Simulated assay, not measured.
Amino acid sequence: MALLLAGGAALLAAAGYALGLRAAPPNAAAPSAVDIGFAQFMRGHHDQAIVMTEILLSDRSSKLAGLASAMQAAQLIEIGQMKGWLQLWEKPLLPASDSMDWMLLGKEPPDEALSRYLIACRNSPGGMPGLATVEELQRLRTLRGEERDRLFLQLMLKHHQGGLPMAQFAAYNARTPAVRTMAAQMVVEQTQELATMAVLARR
């Protein structure tokens, strides 16, 4: 089962990578710091979501398997696309630091909401709010059944809430059309997933 999941994940990531390579033609405008920062940081942000979904899906008793599988598939494709862009741009796959200051380089000066988010990023381990700690991930691994489902929802709600402002920013401020399109799609998908998870968490 684990081998099948790993094989499927690799295929999805490879498909996303191929899409990323095709989405940026050689004569495309050079990416901005926003394009690069978004691709690097959201790729890392997605990596943790994949870890959490893999932990959840290892428990066959989970009632959230359908939701987790859908989230995993979408994010693996997006990781592949972002990796493809970064390699085309000849940029590192991961940022050199945890600084989110690339979000200061938008079309307009930061408003109050963005300023609060950047302060939260500076005060958060890992550079952005909502990331699960090592201890939280280990606890997720040790729980089973409804307890694991409940903690997964709590962690993933925080995770999405922490990453959503980044996607909203890139959807408006990225220079590359493919990056703006992906970021806008993430906003829609993750807003819907947040609503779904909020309902499930109240049950």
Results as ranks from 00 to 15, higher is better:
K83T: 13
P92Y: 02
T133Q: 10
G130R: 08
A70L: 02
A174Q: 00
R180V: 11
A174F: 02
Q72R: 10
G162L: 08
R148S: 04
L64K: 00
Q75G: 15
D101A: 10
R175H: 13
G66Y: 08
E136Y: 05
G145Y: 12
G80Q: 10
L143V: 11
G80H: 05
A174C: 01
L151Q: 05
E78T: 09
K158G: 09
N123V: 07
E108D: 15
A68H: 06
Q138T: 04
R148V: 13
S97K: 06
N123M: 05
A70P: 01
I77D: 07
L76H: 12
M82V: 07
G145S: 07
W85H: 10
Q75T: 15
E90N: 12
E90D: 11
R150V: 12
W89S: 15
Q154F: 03
M82E: 13
Y117G: 02
E147Y: 11
A68S: 04
N173C: 05
M128L: 07
L67Q: 00
Q161K: 06
Y172M: 14
H160E: 00
L137Y: 06
D149Y: 11
G84Q: 14
A74V: 05
P125V: 15
A74H: 09
G106S: 09
V179F: 00
E112M: 14
M156T: 09
K63S: 13
L93S: 08
Q75D: 10
P165K: 02
P110W: 06
N173D: 05
P95F: 12
K91T: 14
P95T: 13
K83C: 06
M128I: 14
G66N: 15
Q87F: 06
S69Y: 15
L151K: 12
L105Q: 12
Q75P: 11
V179K: 00
W102S: 07
R175N: 14
F152M: 08
M82D: 06
L155E: 04
R180F: 11
T133Y: 12
I77F: 13
P92L: 01
R148F: 03
P165F: 02
Q72T: 10
K91A: 06
A70H: 03
N123E: 14
R116H: 09
L88V: 01
W102P: 06
E136K: 03
G80N: 09
W89I: 12
L94A: 14
A167D: 00
G130P: 12
P125Y: 09
F169C: 02
G84M: 06
R141Y: 15
A113P: 05
E90L: 13
F152W: 10
T142F: 07
G80L: 03
P125K: 07
A171Q: 01
G130F: 06
R148K: 14
